[in-house]
């Protein structure tokens, strides 16, 4: 907006641009600068293509992230699971796989993946109840993780230490994917689906 024609005693509405400037500037700080300061990145040990693996395996997500016989869920597969297919020699050509073979398989060292959906110790989550019983798709909470060629950046909250996925990537309450995984979000979904439960169904 133009700024000419100002007078000392004249309360021109034109001066309100300063208000707008302050508003826009600081709203921008709130929206964009805050996450940049509040969240920090942690690198994954090496890159991983879910897409590539999905093409190789027979049973989709369940091939690696499966239910155990006792109904518990493996979550991130163990190195042993990887070794069911991978030997000490890389199967492909990617530099990531060389790191994997050399630093982990050869040394028999578990891979310290950063877990996007890691919850606090007091939370009990049953994949069996959601996947086996309620019939939810993996992607409905975890997003299109299975189709990605690269692991997305892992960010964690500097204050709380939790993965950014838990609070949600959007700062306004827009839901995923991946879905937000705070208690309110769990509760809302339960409410919407008519599931009424006691506290300790999700807390341990």
């Amino acid at each position: 907006m133009a700024t000419h024609g100002k007078k000392q005693d004249n309360r021109s509405p034109a001066d309100w641009w300063l208000f707008v400037l302050g508003f826009v500037l600081f709203a921008a700080v709130g929206f964009w600068a805050t996450p940049a300061i509040l969240y920090a990145e942690k690198p994954q040990p090496f890159q991983f293509s879910h897409k590539l693996h999905m093409e190789q395996v027979g049973e989709g997500c369940q091939s690696c992230h499966a239910f155990r016989e006792d109904g518990s869920y493996t979550g991130i597969p163990s190195l042993e699971k990887c070794k069911e297919c991978h030997g000490e020699e890389p199967m492909g050509e990617t530099p990531e796989e060389k790191v994997f073979s050399k630093d982990y398989v050869a040394k028999n060292k578990p891979i310290p993946w950063q877990v996007y959906s890691k919850q606090p110790p007091c939370v009990f989550f049953s994949h069996a109840a959601h996947v086996a019983n309620a019939g939810l798709e993996c992607a409905s909470c975890h997003g299109d993780h299975g189709d990605t060629e690269k692991l997305r950046t892992y960010e964690y909250n500097r204050l709380t230490g939790y993965s950014r996925d838990i609070w949600g990537w959007s700062l306004i309450p827009l839901d995923g994917p991946p879905k937000r995984m705070k208690m309110d979000d769990c509760a809302k979904c339960h409410r919407d689906n008519g599931v009424r439960d006691a506290c300790f169904v999700c807390h341990k």
């Binding site: 239910f67 006792d70 109904g71 049953s126 086996a132 300790f200 169904v201 341990k204």
Partner: peptide, 18 residues
């Protein structure tokens, strides 16, 4: 005491998957 409610949860998991 919670009557080992986590054991109920685990048993339920098994029931769901099996």
């Amino acid at each position: 005491c919670t009557f080992c409610f986590h054991r109920y949860q685990r048993a339920q998991n098994k029931a769901f998957t099996s």
